[in-house]
Simulated assay, not measured.
Amino acid sequence: MEGEMNLEEYFSRIGFHGSCNNLDLATLKLLHKQHVLSIPFENLSVHCGERITMDLEVIFNKIVRSSRGGWCLENNFLFGWVLRQMGYDTEMLGSRVFNSATNGFNPSDTHLINKVVIDGKAYITDVSFGVSSQLWEPLELVSGKDQPQAAGAFRLIDKGDHWVLEKTGRKPKVVNLEFAKSSLVNQKLKKPIYSFTLVPREARHFLEVSHSLQTDPSSLFTNKSICSLQTPTGFRALVGWTYSEVTYKPEEGVDVLDMRDIPDDEIDQILREKFNIKLQNKLQPVNKTAYYTL
C-alpha cells in the first residue's frame, strides 16, 4: 500500500475540480459523469492471470493509482466509498442482471449499485455497467418516469417487492457491413437491464459472486474479455479482438457503430491509446459464445 487512500487522488483520476463541500445533486451528477468518462468498465484481470478482490485498498490502487478500470464490484464499491468519504447519505444495493438467454433476471445479486439520498429524494448511481447500458448520471428513484440520457431513455419501475431498470434506445447503424449481423450488435430497442431491492448490502454479500464470476466456465466474464469507456459522444469497446467506436446520433434516431477486428500485436496499443490502460501482465483476449451486446 502506497500511503492511505485519499479523495484528492480519486478526484485527480477522474478530472473532478468541483467543491467537495456541496453535497448536492449537481455535484453528484458531475462526479458520476466524470467517473464513467475516465474509468473503463473492464474485466481484463480475469484474462491476465490477476485475481479481482473486494478489498477496497487493492481496488483503489488498481483503479486510481494504476490507471486501470474494473467491473461493477470494483468501480461501484469505490464510488460508494468516495461518496461516504465526502459525506453523502449512501448505501450499497445488490441487483440481478437480465439474462437474454433465459429471458429473466439472474437468480443472485451479481451487480453492485449505490443509492444516494439528497434532500429527502433517493437516487440510483451506477458507474459501471458499460457500453450502451451505462448511466451517465444518477436516476431519481421514481417509478415509470422516462429519464433521458445520452444512451437513450432510462426508467425505473416499482414492482412492489423489487425495482426494474429498463432502457429504450435507438436503432444500430453499422458502418462496416461485415459486422451488420454480429452478435455484438443490439437489435432490441427496449430492454430490461437489471432488477434490485432496497435492502442495504455490505461488501461481504458479493464475495462469493465475485469469485464465481471470474472462475465459473459459464460466466460471461470468463467467456469474453471486455473493456469499454464512455466518450463525450458515445463509447468505445474492445470485446475479444473486436474494437468498436459507437457514436450516439439522437437527432437521427440511430447509434452509429464503427467496428473492426484488431490483430493480436495491436491489442496493447489499442488499450493504451483508446482506454489509457497499460497492463502489467499479458492479456489473452477471449470471445467465446456467450450473449453480450454493445
Rank of each mutant, 00 (worst) to 15 (best):
G104M: 13
G104W: 05
G104F: 07
G104P: 14
G104D: 15
F105W: 04
F105Y: 14
F105R: 00
F105A: 04
N106Q: 08
N106Y: 09
N106I: 11
N106W: 06
P107S: 11
S108Y: 13
D109G: 01
T110A: 10
T110Q: 09
T110M: 13
H111R: 06
H111S: 00
L112C: 06
L112Y: 03
L112M: 14
I113G: 09
N114A: 12
N114L: 10
N114H: 09
V116M: 11
V116I: 13
V117R: 15
V117S: 15
V117A: 10
I118Q: 14
I118N: 10
I118H: 08
I118K: 11
D119Q: 11
G120C: 12
G120K: 15
K121L: 13
A122M: 10
A122H: 12
A122R: 15
Y123T: 01
Y123K: 08
I124R: 02
I124H: 05
I124Y: 04
T125D: 08
T125R: 05
D126L: 02
D126Q: 06
V127S: 12
V127A: 08
S128L: 07
S128T: 06
F129D: 00
F129G: 02
G130S: 04
V131T: 11
S132R: 08
S132A: 09
S132K: 03
S132G: 04
S132T: 04
S133H: 14
S133M: 12
Q134N: 01
L135Q: 06
W136A: 05
W136Q: 10
W136R: 15
E137V: 00
E137W: 09
P138L: 08
P138T: 05
P138D: 04
P138V: 03
P138W: 14
L139R: 01
E140M: 06
V142G: 04
G144Q: 02
G144L: 01
K145Q: 11
K145N: 10
K145S: 08
D146K: 09
D146H: 11
D146I: 12
Q147F: 09
P148H: 03
A150Y: 10
A150V: 11
A150N: 08
A151N: 13
A151F: 12
G152I: 00
A153E: 06
F154C: 00
F154M: 01
F154I: 00
F154R: 04
R155I: 01
R155D: 03
L156A: 02
L156V: 06
I157G: 08
I157K: 15
I157D: 05
D158H: 05
D158P: 01
K159Q: 15
K159I: 08
D161M: 01
H162A: 12
H162I: 01
H162Q: 15
H162E: 14
W163V: 11
W163L: 10
W163H: 10
W163C: 05
V164W: 03
L165E: 07
L165S: 05
L165R: 01
L165Y: 03
T168K: 09
T168D: 00
T168A: 03
T168Q: 12
T168E: 04
G169C: 01
G169F: 00
G169Q: 05
R170E: 00
K171T: 12
K171P: 04
K171A: 12
K171F: 05
K171L: 14
K171H: 14
P172Q: 10
K173D: 07
K173L: 06
V174Y: 04
V174M: 07
V174A: 11
